[in-house]
Computed example of a mutant assay.
Amino acid sequence: MAVAPPTGSRPGWSRRAQYGLFFGLLATVGGVIVGLILLALSLVAPERYATVRGAALDATAPVTGGLRAVTTTVGGIVTGASGYWDAARQNGELRRENTAMLQRMVEAKAIHLENAQLKAALQLRERTREAVATGRIVGSSYASPRRFAVLSAGSGDGVEIGMPVRAAVGLIGRVIEAGHFASRVLLISDRANIVPARLLRGGLPVIASGRGDGTLDVRPLEVGRNPFKPGDLIVTSGTGGLYPPLVPVARIIRLDDDGAIAVPLADPASASFAIVERPFEPAAQQAPPTPPAPPPPKRIPKVLR
């Protein structure tokens, strides 16, 4: 005959759980009793209680020290990680500030260079009597053998085809096309451009012609010896009635068989402003005024007899 289970039994309640609950209760009761004893001891005999507290301190010191070391280590790790991320953030901010500062320095240098070129162009225009217009070089060709530049001054400013163009540092070329607002300039480094010039050292007449690669071919008019030296300066001679005299043209960089190779002093890539002048016409080349023709002789009428 089967016996019914007691009504107070709990499903799944094990003996191990019962033992754990029992020992937990004993530990709680024991803790309360020890606490009461220590309280009574502190009230009745404070000196003995101090000894007990010292013993308890000695017993818990290693545990407290270990926990303190763990706490310090964890705190150091957290602080180090925080410092690392903060240093990385500050480093990134410094890099961004450095980049922005370098960009501002480059912009400031560009503005300073442009202002210096504009000031030089204005001073050049004040010294030049036949200045027609001042414009900005907005483009130039590099890859093709034909060398041109675009100037932001056109026929509306008085620019005409054939007028010479120069910068503050030297000759640039001559106008070959003139629109209303802009004009096209044939650079002196173009193969189709020939500049009558002379050697500044000694005044020897020479001819400077473009090579199509950004340099000039300089040849003396007198054949027989090579008069050039690296570093010599070439200036315009005024011959031909187009370019005014004593305008810097180029600097000799190396010698050739019977001439030299030179680089233009005025580079359109670095020169921002240019002056357009009227063609130079020396007084010696102007034809003297033609004397008026003598009046025809008067005819004497014949007298009829």
Rank of each mutant, 00 (worst) to 15 (best):
residue 8 G to F: 08
residue 9 S to V: 09
residue 9 S to R: 07
residue 12 G to K: 02
residue 13 W to M: 04
residue 14 S to A: 11
residue 16 R to F: 13
residue 17 A to C: 04
residue 25 L to N: 05
residue 27 A to R: 02
residue 30 G to A: 15
residue 33 I to Q: 08
residue 36 L to D: 14
residue 36 L to Q: 12
residue 37 I to T: 09
residue 38 L to T: 13
residue 38 L to N: 14
residue 43 L to F: 10
residue 44 V to C: 01
residue 47 E to A: 13
residue 52 V to T: 15
residue 64 T to E: 12
residue 68 R to M: 11
residue 72 T to N: 08
residue 72 T to D: 12
residue 74 V to L: 14
residue 81 A to K: 01
residue 81 A to T: 15
residue 82 S to V: 15
residue 90 Q to A: 15
residue 91 N to D: 15
residue 98 N to R: 05
residue 99 T to N: 07
residue 99 T to M: 05
residue 102 L to D: 11
residue 108 A to V: 12
residue 113 L to C: 02
residue 114 E to Y: 01
residue 115 N to M: 13
residue 116 A to P: 05
residue 120 A to P: 02
residue 121 A to E: 02
residue 122 L to P: 02
residue 122 L to T: 12
residue 127 R to E: 15
residue 128 T to H: 00
residue 131 A to C: 05
residue 133 A to L: 02
residue 134 T to F: 05
residue 136 R to W: 07
residue 138 V to D: 12
residue 139 G to I: 00
residue 144 S to F: 06
residue 145 P to D: 09
residue 146 R to P: 01
residue 146 R to D: 15
residue 162 G to A: 06
residue 170 G to K: 00
residue 173 G to K: 02
residue 178 A to D: 03
residue 181 F to H: 10
residue 188 I to T: 03
residue 190 D to Q: 08
residue 191 R to M: 06
residue 195 V to S: 11
residue 195 V to P: 03
residue 201 R to S: 15
residue 201 R to M: 05
residue 203 G to C: 07
residue 207 I to K: 11
residue 213 D to T: 12
residue 214 G to V: 04
residue 214 G to R: 02
residue 216 L to D: 09
residue 229 K to D: 15
residue 232 D to L: 01
residue 242 L to G: 11
residue 245 P to A: 01
residue 249 V to F: 09
residue 250 A to E: 05
residue 258 D to R: 06
residue 260 A to M: 01
residue 260 A to I: 00
residue 264 P to V: 00
residue 267 D to V: 00
residue 272 S to M: 04
residue 274 A to E: 10
residue 279 P to S: 04
residue 281 E to Q: 14
residue 290 T to D: 12
residue 296 P to F: 03
residue 300 I to C: 03
residue 304 L to S: 09
